[in-house]
């Protein structure tokens, strides 16, 4: 039922006066059950937030950088917690290295108005977690070839890169 609920709202809640009642009709349950489930899913952290999902480029956030580092396995969790606490970091993940061509295991996404600002924020990040000298790369995004909301109905989602 949770999966059916997430699938029913994957394209967004209907903008009508009783949106949860609409969703409830779709999945064959009551309005209060939908509200209760969403509260629980938020409490459990399965749903991270409920609200407006902004298109960053549409509001002038044109610079998008993926910053990656190669952090020792023993230190990566501690470093990641520090980086994730910075307000301009929008996502922070650990992923596997693929040696030799891809040596990086920690990923942060930064959305900013322009590259100059983002570069300054990256310098702040490196200073905040004492990362001078750590192997790193900054990958600014250029063209977007395809973008679609993640489909909760088919599988667990991978966050937007």
């Amino acid at each position: 039922m949770d999966r059916a609920l997430l699938a029913a709202i994957e394209d967004g809640l209907p903008v009508v006066s009783s949106p949860y009642a609409d969703i409830a009709r779709q999945i064959g349950t009551s309005e209060d059950d939908v509200i209760g489930r969403l509260k629980r899913l938020l409490g459990e952290g399965v749903v991270k937030r409920l609200g407006l999902v902004v298109r960053h480029r549409a509001v002038g956030f044109d610079a998008n950088a993926m910053v990656v580092w190669d952090i020792g396995d023993a230190d990566v969790d501690r470093v990641a917690e520090k980086l994730a606490a910075q307000p301009f970091v929008t996502l922070c993940y650990r992923r596997p290295r693929r040696l030799p061509e891809w040596p990086y295991n920690l990923f942060c996404m930064i959305h900013g108005r322009d590259r100059r600002t983002v570069r300054k924020q990256i310098a702040e990040l490196n200073a905040s977690a004492d990362l001078e000298g750590v192997p790193t790369a900054v990958l600014f995004s250029k063209r977007c070839f395809k973008q679609r909301g993640a489909r909760f109905s088919t599988a667990n989602m991978e966050p937007a890169a």
Binding site: L6, G12, L13, V46, V47, V53, V59, M157, E158
Partner: peptide
Amino acid sequence: LIRRDVVSRLGAVVAPNTAGASTL
């Protein structure tokens, strides 16, 4: 806001699941 594409949707942001069939 949705019509103008400033907002993609009013909805839930679901936590990524490490066990999922998804990847970067």
